[in-house]
Write a protein that binds this DNA or RNA. Sequence first.
DNA 1: TAGACTAGTGAACACCGTTCAGTTCAACCG
DNA 2: CGGTTGAACTGAACGGTGTTCACTAGTCTA
Lengths: 243, 243
Amino acid sequence: MNTVQFNRLKSRKSQETQPLGVKERQERDREAVARAILDAARDLFVSHGYHNVSIRKIAGRIEYSPAAIYSYFPSKDDIFFALAEEGFRLLASSGTEPPASGDLLDEIRSMFWHYYAFSKTHPEYFALMFIDRTVPRISRDWHGFEFVAAMKQQLHDRIQRAIESGAFPSGTSPHAVFRILLTALHGAATLRICDRMERGEDADLLARATLDAAIQGLRAGSGVNCQLSECVDSEARADRHDS
Amino acid sequence: MNTVQFNRLKSRKSQETQPLGVKERQERDREAVARAILDAARDLFVSHGYHNVSIRKIAGRIEYSPAAIYSYFPSKDDIFFALAEEGFRLLASSGTEPPASGDLLDEIRSMFWHYYAFSKTHPEYFALMFIDRTVPRISRDWHGFEFVAAMKQQLHDRIQRAIESGAFPSGTSPHAVFRILLTALHGAATLRICDRMERGEDADLLARATLDAAIQGLRAGSGVNCQLSECVDSEARADRHDS
DNA sequence: TAGACTAGTGAACACCGTTCAGTTCAACCG
DNA sequence: CGGTTGAACTGAACGGTGTTCACTAGTCTA
């Protein structure tokens, strides 16, 4: 069953024939159970790891039968997708506030560092959001979250200002800086989470060194004009019109 | 059953009471079947993706019962570990030959690029080797492969020579360069494989830009003296004694 | 109060990794 | 040659997975 059909099923009885309050209470009940399912799923996957979460265990924890879950979520993947959205919200909500240290470059560094820090404090969320390949919807749809776009915009703006202040060579694409730094840190984060560090290697040090090297390289003029994606074009054009 | 017990089981009948040739033939047969199992597993996992490989499907493909597999491999994880080793051998065998272009920096760049190229030509191998979190042995044991160490040593040497030639600031740790560049490219490779690129983004361009930025940053002196891991110490000391 | 509708269940289906008693059969020994 | 051994292999099972569906119990509407 696809999501459209499922949503139709959820609100099949939408003619307002009930006295006021009944439908609302039913809706509240539904939402409470749905939330309980997500809470149980989150508990399991945060503490026991992201595999090891089964429909039956979730159902057991909320004392429902496994089949009941399926009238709240069309599939296990959708539960994980909802958790991923939760993760993105978590990342965005804790990462939007820059430290306002005065030094633009330091601010940028610490905002990117936040991405890596998130991978440490919420490894299971991070794995689900950025590494998992079993829930196709995540890789397809995560760019659609508006709070992710907002976070990205904040970083873009700050990078733009850094370019204007001369921290990066003029003509540098803010989006390219954004993607390159994120990619570098993403490497460090995934190496750590997937347990591919060398023996005795300090993950934080490697992450820091890789981020510093990438920033330094960009300041030195690497990738100044590279057009990494189509949307760079439009965003860059918009930026140019704005300023 | 652990591996030691399993190996003992494999060669339990090792008293030479048979006429010459019989034991050899039996051993050859065993190896042929083991190879057939790995071939079937590889076929399935290269073409149908790394999940979607089940013992029952492997058994079906070689027309054995699922239980038969377990007298050749102690568990499914061990089959995947054998495939991962195959992958590391593949990566090392195709990556040891540097292009000898004359420019040391270009040689280094292209040897690292080979890592990223491997992630494109053998995505399932790459995912199993560097991303998978379900087969603990891989993350634990892959550093032990001697051909991996050899490949690493080659890169270390080349980086060392680049430092001596002035391409990187003197005092730069070859191991730090190695890890930082690998981390940066690893980010690009995993973003691509896990399908977390932006819409319309060119993965190769991002990888190239990230690698270039990191190289440029290291040339500019970022991370010159950072000690990323314990073995850096010993290796760096050995290097110093060598030269 | 009769009918409609909903949430929830139990049982089933088709998979999965793994184990084990039992069969088959080639190789060995007397 | 006949009997014995032992390895290879199988079928069936165990406990697990995601998912579906006929059905029940119970609440709300008319």
